[in-house]
């Protein structure tokens, strides 16, 4: 089963991190980064399957595909910024982590803005004001 391999990798990497933290903290940080990336890379197949299923469903039920791509992009940006922010927090650099999260929010907001305008137009047309 896939989940057992992930758990095994996570535990082994944590043990190595603790082992080396006392001698070389910077190497311990690198082990945790490597383990995190490996776990995510191994889950990429499932994620691609999910995103393809979502876009197929969207086409089936006539949802506009651009909305789905914006959602997927937002998820991607959110994941990457959270990944970097957690690494910075691990290393104790909470200030840098905060900056990365701020940038992530700004990027997602900038990307979602056109959707908001479409939504407001829709509401206006429904309410029929003017």
């Amino acid at each position: 089963m896939f989940v057992f391999k992930t758990i095994a990798l996570a535990i082994i990497a944590t043990v190595f991190c603790v082992l080396i933290k006392s001698y070389k903290p910077e190497m311990a940080l690198q082990i945790s980064i490597a383990a995190g990336i490996l776990i995510i890379l191994s889950a990429i197949e499932q994620i691609t399957g999910i995103s393809k299923a979502i876009s197929k469903m969207a086409e089936e039920y006539g949802i506009n595909i651009t909305y789905i791509t914006v959602i997927l992009k937002a998820i991607g940006i959110a994941y990457l910024t959270q990944f970097a922010a957690q690494i910075c927090k691990d290393a104790g650099e909470t200030a840098i982590a905060g900056k990365v999260e701020l940038i992530g929010r700004v990027l997602i907001l900038a990307m979602a803005l056109p959707l908001v305008t479409v939504l407001l137009k829709m509401i206006q047309s429904i309410v029929g004001t003017g």
Partner: peptide, 30 residues
């Protein structure tokens, strides 16, 4: 020696990060 070890590990990590970014870009069309 400490710096050398760090650089070697960093090179491995950067390759791994490059793979991660490629796959995330492919999956989320970023």
């Amino acid at each position: 020696a400490a710096i050398a070890g760090l650089v070697i590990a960093l090179m491995m990590i950067t390759n791994l990060i490059a793979d991660l970014f490629d796959s995330v870009r492919r999956v989320f069309e970023l």
